[in-house]
C-alpha cells in the first residue's frame, strides 16, 4: 500500500482501460449522432421546395472556412469510432476463450449483438453515399446541375437520383441499418459516458428506440416521397 499518486497520471493511460475506450466510442458516436440529426433536418427541407433546399446547400458550401475544418473533425470522429470499435470487437471476442455449446440470447437485443456488422454496413453505405452525392464519382452529371440563381441544384440532384427504385432501396436499407445501429447505440453511448443512472435508465432505453425510429423515418421519407411522386421536377 502506498500513499503516493495513484491517478491515471496521463490521459493515454485512461484509454488503456476498457471504460476509457468505450468513452471514446461514446464521445465520437455522440458527435456522429448530432451530425446525422442535423443532416436529417437539412434533408427535410426538400419538402419546403426547390428554393429552400438549394439555399441551404449554398449556405453550407459557400463557407469553405467552416466546411473543411468541420469535415476534418467529423472524419476524425469517424476514424476514431471505427478504429476503437474494431479493436474492441476483436479484443472482446478473445475474452470469451472457449465458446459455449448452447448459445442463448439472454436479456440482450439483437442489435446489441451485431453492432460491428451494422457498423460495417453503415461504413460501406457512407463511402457509397459520398461517391454518389458529395464527390460525384458514380454520377458526375449531378455536380453540373445548376438552378436559376446559378447555384448547385441539389433539388434536381435528389429527385433525379431517387427516381429509380434501386437507389431508393439501397438508401432505405442504409438508413434502416443506421436506425438499427442507433437503437442500441444511443443507450450504450449514454451508459458509457456514465449518465444512464437509476430512474433515467428505462427512459434512456426508450429514447434510444424513439431516436432510431425518427431518424429512419426522417431519412427514408425523402427518397420514398420522390419515388411516390410527391417531390417532382416542376
Amino acid at each position: 500500500m502506498n500513499q503516493t499518486s495513484v491517478g491515471m497520471n496521463s490521459l493515454w493511460k485512461v484509454f488503456t482501460t476498457t471504460i476509457g475506450k468505450k468513452a471514446v466510442m461514446a464521445a465520437t458516436g455522440g458527435v456522429l449522432l448530432l451530425f446525422v440529426i442535423a443532416h436529417m433536418a437539412g434533408n427535410l427541407q426538400m419538402f419546403l421546395g426547390w428554393g429552400d433546399i438549394n439555399n441551404y446547400a449554398d449556405l453550407l458550401k459557400s463557407h469553405r472556412e467552416f466546411l473543411w475544418p468541420f469535415r476534418v473533425f467529423l472524419a476524425t470522429c469517424l476514424v476514431l469510432h471505427v478504429s476503437t470499435g474494431s479493436f474492441l470487437a476483436i479484443d472482446n471476442r478473445r475474452k470469451r476463450g472457449h465458446s459455449y455449446e448452447v448459445k442463448k440470447l439472454v436479456g440482450a437485443s439483437f442489435a446489441s449483438q451485431t453492432m460491428w456488422i451494422s457498423g460495417l454496413i453503415i461504413f460501406c453505405f457512407i463511402v457509397y453515399h459520398l461517391l454518389h452525392f458529395t464527390l460525384g464519382v458514380t454520377n458526375p452529371e449531378y455536380l453540373t446541375f445548376r438552378d436559376a440563381h446559378d447555384r448547385p441544384d441539389v433539388y434536381r440532384m435528389i429527385v433525379t437520383a431517387f427516381s429509380t427504385a434501386g437507389t431508393v432501396c439501397l438508401y432505405a436499407l442504409g438508413v434502416a441499418t443506421l436506425g438499427f445501429h442507433l437503437s442500441h447505440g444511443v443507450r450504450a453511448m449514454v451508459e458509457s459516458l456514465g449518465l444512464r443512472m437509476e430512474t433515467w435508465a428505462s427512459r434512456i432505453d426508450k429514447t434510444s428506440l424513439v431516436v432510431a425510429c425518427l431518424l429512419f423515418l426522417g431519412f427514408a421519407s425523402v427518397p420514398l416521397a420522390v419515388l411516390m411522386g410527391l417531390l417532382q421536377l416542376k
Binding site: 500513499q3 491517478g7 491515471m8 456514465g194 435508465a201
Partner: peptide
C-alpha cells in the same frame, strides 16, 4: 446495469483528475 453507468461516471471523473492521491 445502471450501476455500470455509475461506475463509468465515477471512473471518468476520477481519471480526468489525472493525479489522485490516496491509498491503494
Amino acid at each position: 446495469t445502471s450501476f455500470i453507468s455509475r461506475m463509468n461516471h465515477n471512473f471518468l471523473t476520477a481519471a480526468l483528475k489525472l493525479r489522485v492521491h490516496g491509498p491503494r
